[in-house]
Design a protein around this nucleic acid. Sequence first.
DNA 1: ATCGGCTATGTTAGCGGTAACGGTCCTTGG
DNA 2: CCAAGGACCGTTACCGCTAACATAGCCGAT
Lengths: 343, 343
Amino acid sequence: MSIPPISDPRRTLTLRDVSEASGVSEMTVSRVLRNRGDVSDSTRERVLEAARRLGYVPNKIAGALASQRVNLVAVIIPSMSNMVFPEVMTGISDTLEDTGLQPVVGITNYSPDREESVLYEMLSWRPSGVIIAGLEHTEAARAMMAQAGIPIVEIMDIDGTPVDSAVGISHRRAGRKMAEAIIAAGYRNIAFLGTMMPYDHRARKRLEGFEEALAKAGLSLVDREFYSGGSALLKGREMTEAVLTRSPQVDFLYYSNDMIGAGGLLYCLHKGINVPSQIGLAGFNGVELLDGLPRKLATMDACRHEIGRRAAAIIAGKAQGGVIGGEIIELSPTLQPGDTIRN
Amino acid sequence: MSIPPISDPRRTLTLRDVSEASGVSEMTVSRVLRNRGDVSDSTRERVLEAARRLGYVPNKIAGALASQRVNLVAVIIPSMSNMVFPEVMTGISDTLEDTGLQPVVGITNYSPDREESVLYEMLSWRPSGVIIAGLEHTEAARAMMAQAGIPIVEIMDIDGTPVDSAVGISHRRAGRKMAEAIIAAGYRNIAFLGTMMPYDHRARKRLEGFEEALAKAGLSLVDREFYSGGSALLKGREMTEAVLTRSPQVDFLYYSNDMIGAGGLLYCLHKGINVPSQIGLAGFNGVELLDGLPRKLATMDACRHEIGRRAAAIIAGKAQGGVIGGEIIELSPTLQPGDTIRN
DNA sequence: ATCGGCTATGTTAGCGGTAACGGTCCTTGG
DNA sequence: CCAAGGACCGTTACCGCTAACATAGCCGAT
């Protein structure tokens, strides 16, 4: 096939094309497109016109290499399909919006090895910062983050030792708090229903805190049930049925997340169980999506939006030459009693 | 502060560091780390050992610039918090998994301008392909995609003209099909409840197809109600109440998505309305999450997972020097009658 | 007129890798 | 014994852009 010397539609454009089209040096074009340095209004116009006409899209790869600056922030989270991380993302995006920084998401599916490789992949693009869920990582992952020379913020959880900064809540404390509220309401035969995922450390810590508080009151879990995969609503329903059949004396069901809690609630209502006097229920997360349920599920807000905002703010602050030291921000989840715990 | 000549913990490592540490040229290190070209086992070992010991993370920016190859696929979608795109993403990830390609997500919030700027931003990183939701884009966005010289796949919808390839369903046909099923079931006083978003073209097309089929049967919508923002479940509840109060004669409620449909279903059941004999309901998307509802909502599967897989397959195929021409793949959504349409 | 001191632009030298090609050895067959 | 070829590794020249420095006008002050 022929190779037209100029304006081959297939060849991707470079600064040189724009510079030739507008009769100035590449450097001047670069200055115009980045709004940096002094350029006269007349040449600025000429350059912009040429760039627009040609449909030039700058090559950030070259730009980043030359300037040693990348406007990306790596965000590494376990999942995107469970209502909790999308909201964290919203907080991050909102805050990053007007900083020139851009989030790039990586998903780990709660696998430490996958997390390590996603982190490696993202670091190889030399982002300006990393926001990563949780405090538990492989040793190699921790080493990479410590070495990277960029701000690192571990989010969601503060029960542990962060590599650099951390923003989150104490899930252990959250579990305790919920247990105390339940006990105070007079419930005594309490069951736990949650995920089986061995790497969901936050759910695990909540359960630990929960059992700790029960123990302090001389109680212990009457029953427990775990699941993995499938429709959360349906699983909640099935697990609830299993528990209530197996342990009819149960008077409270503590779920590790709102979604299965909602399934349980629907099951109880369907069975004509009196909620909350006969049986009480509570979930975790404060998922707004579920506000339309027949009865409002008791839950605990995980400050997801706020966590995203604060984490992004830390990255943004440090990226523009802020301090080095890591900071730990603990947020306080609030109990939302809803209609499923008797007052 | 002092500037140690070597092994400054702050300086980021380069190939040169690894090459010096292992006594071979940078080129050989590069070959080892990419598994390309011949390298003896003994040097390979030495290099890998050195890289590991130093904690070297390759710089893909430099690599991409030199090789003119980037293993990223831009995925541009309107939202991540509505159950539909996470599943598309899963399909994309699954298929890209073993191709060496990596998805990078950008969110537009249903704003054409935002879509344009996200696209520009992503193209400036010179991805190997673009997967973008919908067929409606700004003129500039279309121009950019046409110029980019990489495979473009527009997903979800095929009612229109794609820039390059397209994978999706016909939402107009989906709307028609649902209307026909509803009419066949004997319902005659039908109302529509949906989103107000002017840029949700797919919901719009479904409604158009729906009304088209109604018209063909000599019917027209008895009532309609729109919402925006808020908890979908709750909105579905509120809208349903509004419609049933305003138009008591209604015997069928067609929702633009499953989530508000679920809210409506819960409302009807709560009010003691006999579903589906007194009032029928249907949604759209086939959201598995909702399987645990007291009654299974009639819906239409949007082939989300399959769309993701096929789109990714097209990109993967073309990225390794496949053909140039665009292809259009139409998938067929299947009606899931559930328990909310009388047989 | 001469000399700073601006402003507006150009020039040079990389950024950290990789493609392409070149050069050693060492083996092997004629 | 030598040519040919493969295995292994190094050298050179960029990729497209930007930091840093140079340069050319042009102004007002001396």
